[in-house]
Amino acid sequence: MAEEAPGGAGTDGGGRRTISDPAALKALAHPLRLRILRHLGAEGPATSTTLAGSLGESTGTLSYHLRQLERGGFIEDIPERSTGRERWWRGVRGLDVRQPPYDEMTASERAVAGALDRLRMAEDVELAKRFVAEAPESEGWMRGSRSLSHLTREELDAFHDAYLELLARFARGPEDAPPGARPVLLRWFGLPAD
């Protein structure tokens, strides 16, 4: 049984936290919040002031969105780096973000989930276009794989869980990265071919 944590998160016993609460997921359904998470993941901890400079937004706007992400359990402040009114933020590592089953969501929760899916898919389409355009000159920094297999639903679940375990094995933030490491975006999805 998962232990309840703030923002609708639970732990899986292996240190990974699962977030599946629709109210927490609502915090992700905004393009600026996704950009904030991407920036914190790629560049490391930041303040609303440093984020404002990097993302071209006002500090007031960023402060609001940072609070929403904090309530959802996606970011946390770093008390030892924060002074006075200047708070340092970092992304929470080891999150497993999952949507609740469709039939368990209300109509408004489904609308939020749909908005989040559309934002993520638009980002993924842009990444796929970039992959096609830039892979030949990437000097090995862009890798991909496509495949087809015949799986049962249980095997697809097992494949997904194995992928999450692989991600956890290689997961680290910029503050823990060895020399020569770069932020790398990884994606996986499976769907029936018929």
Results as ranks from 00 to 15, higher is better:
Glu4Gly: 03
Pro6Tyr: 02
Gly7Glu: 15
Gly8Lys: 10
Ala9Ser: 07
Thr11Gly: 08
Asp12His: 03
Gly13Leu: 06
Gly14Val: 07
Gly14Ile: 03
Gly14Thr: 12
Pro22Ile: 14
Pro22Ala: 12
Pro22Ser: 13
Ala23Trp: 02
Ala24Gly: 10
Leu25Lys: 02
Ala27Gly: 11
His30Leu: 07
Leu34Ala: 06
Leu34Ile: 05
Arg38Met: 11
Arg38Lys: 06
His39Tyr: 14
Leu40Asn: 06
Leu40Tyr: 04
Leu40Met: 04
Gly41Lys: 00
Ala42Gln: 10
Glu43Phe: 03
Pro45Asp: 12
Pro45Trp: 04
Ala46Asn: 01
Ala46Lys: 01
Thr49Asn: 03
Thr49Ser: 12
Ala52His: 11
Ser54Lys: 12
Leu55Ile: 10
Leu55Thr: 08
Leu55Pro: 05
Glu57Asp: 01
Glu57Asn: 06
Ser58Tyr: 00
Gly60Cys: 02
Gly60Lys: 06
Thr61Trp: 01
His65Ile: 02
His65Ala: 04
Leu66Thr: 05
Arg67Gln: 15
Arg67Thr: 05
Gln68Val: 01
Gln68Leu: 13
Arg71Cys: 00
Gly72Arg: 13
Gly73Thr: 09
Asp77Arg: 14
Ile78Asp: 10
Pro79Ser: 06
Glu80Lys: 04
Ser82Thr: 08
Gly84Asp: 12
Arg87Cys: 05
Trp89Met: 04
Trp89Tyr: 12
Arg90Phe: 01
Gly91Ala: 15
Val92Gln: 09
Gly94Pro: 01
Gly94Ile: 08
Gly94Trp: 02
Leu95Arg: 03
Asp96Val: 10
Arg98His: 14
Gln99Ala: 14
Pro100Leu: 15
Pro101Leu: 07
Tyr102Gln: 11
Met105Gln: 13
Thr106Met: 08
Thr106Cys: 04
Ser108Ala: 15
Arg110Leu: 14
Ala111His: 07
Ala115Glu: 12
Asp117Gly: 07
Arg118Gln: 15
Ala122Val: 09
Ala122Asn: 04
Asp124Lys: 09
Leu127Trp: 06
Ala128Gly: 04
Lys129Thr: 12
Phe131Asn: 14
Ala133Asp: 13
Glu134Ala: 08
Trp141Phe: 11
Gly144Thr: 07
Arg146Glu: 11
His150Asn: 03
Leu151Cys: 08
Ala158Asp: 09
Phe159Leu: 13
Asp161Lys: 09
Tyr163Phe: 15
Leu164Trp: 14
Glu165Thr: 12
Leu166Cys: 03
Leu167Gln: 10
Arg169Lys: 11
Phe170Leu: 13
Glu175Gln: 11
Ala177Asp: 04
Pro178Phe: 07
Pro178Lys: 11
Leu185Glu: 14
Leu185Gln: 03
Arg187Gln: 14
Arg187Lys: 14
Phe189Gly: 06
Phe189Lys: 01
Leu191Thr: 12
